[in-house]
């Protein structure tokens, strides 16, 4: 019964539009929005702008130093080869983490979406999401318990083979990746689950009635329909991972040098804020590029046609 009537969806109140009321309406809207966006401007947008400015300076303009503009910081990748290595490390950690999350997460989401029902499904869903909303730091720390020499895995190993050398699992790249996968896996499971659960059962039944067996159904129907979930999950994982510094430091020790740790160093150890700013914005540019590329998929996931 939808006519071209006044919008009665939950998106607009139609107040009688006498011009006085319209003006008051506008003012009210502004009033409602101002505190939030004012706060965000103060806390996020202005700081980002300032940091952008900083990235073009030679030195931080404090303590009476003069302002010297330069592009050096952005050219640091050319001048300092170790930055390229670090960048590459970050990217590869990101790719590995995302890939493993996808490979592990999609089947799990599939099982959750299609093989569980009702209360069981709700409980399992909650179980998967729950760790995600707990403190990330604590979770990373908990991995040290498991991976360290003398920890659970090493302990079990030595219980079986008492004379073997320590496993040395901690403070390695794999340790970092394991920690990151653990931290971000729920993202992938969630996005894939949302895509999969939207698949109409009848489509699969139709495919089977036309003679398709399970592998074909998976490759030709389920996987393509789950792709938006895979892509959103990948974006949601890759972006924070390349910027992570906490996990690399804790799980990687001296080996854990990533863009994140290098940037962090500029601000807490080296006090080279302009360089840190430039590196940050370089990373931000990559992040924005990724979002821009994936935007159509993300939009469809969020507000697409509802079943």
């Amino acid at each position: 019964m939808t006519e071209l009537a006044a919008p009665t969806t939950a998106s607009a109140i139609t107040t009688p539009a006498a011009s006085g009321a319209e003006k008051r309406g506008w003012l009210a809207t502004a009033g409602l929005l101002l505190p939030a966006y004012g706060w965000l401007t103060l806390a996020i947008f202005l700081p980002l702008l300032m940091m952008l400015g900083f990235s073009f300076l030679k030195v931080a303009p404090f303590g009476g130093r003069t302002i010297v503009w330069t592009l050096d910081n952005y050219l640091a990748f050319l001048k300092r080869p170790y930055l390229r290595d670090v960048a590459w490390t970050s990217l590869s950690i990101g790719i590995w983490t995302t890939l493993i999350c996808a490979v592990i997460g999609l089947p799990a989401a599939l099982a959750l979406a299609r093989s569980t029902f009702g209360r069981t499904r709700q409980v399992l869903f909650l179980l998967i999401i729950l760790p995600f909303w707990t403190n990330g730091l604590v979770r990373v720390f908990s991995w040290t318990m498991v991976l360290r020499d003398g920890g659970i895995i090493d302990g079990l190993y030595h219980w079986v083979l008492p004379d073997a050398a320590p496993l040395g699992l901690l403070y390695t790249y794999p340790a970092i990746v394991v920690g990151l996968v653990h931290a971000y896996l729920p993202y992938m499971i969630l996005t894939c689950y949302l895509s999969l659960v939207a698949i109409d059962d009848q489509i699969l039944e139709a495919a089977r009635s036309l003679g398709a067996r399970a592998p074909v159904v998976f490759w030709k129907i389920i996987l393509p329909l789950a792709t938006p979930g895979l892509i959103s999950g990948s974006v949601l994982i890759f972006v924070p991972v390349i910027g992570s510094f906490m996990e690399p430091r804790i799980l990687g020790g001296r080996v854990g040098v990533t863009m994140g740790t290098v940037i962090e160093d500029q601000f807490t150890q080296a006090f080279n804020w302009p360089l840190g700013a430039a590196l940050s914005f370089t990373m931000l540019a990559i992040v924005l590029a990724i979002f821009a590329l994936a935007a159509p998929v993300l939009k469809r996931q969020q507000g697409g046609p509802r079943p």
């Binding site: 996020i44 300032m50 931000l284």
Partner: peptide, 17 residues
Amino acid sequence: PPIAIPWLITGTAMLVF
């Protein structure tokens, strides 16, 4: 931005600002 931009970047930007 507050949730999409890595907190490392927002955190350092806040520090600077």
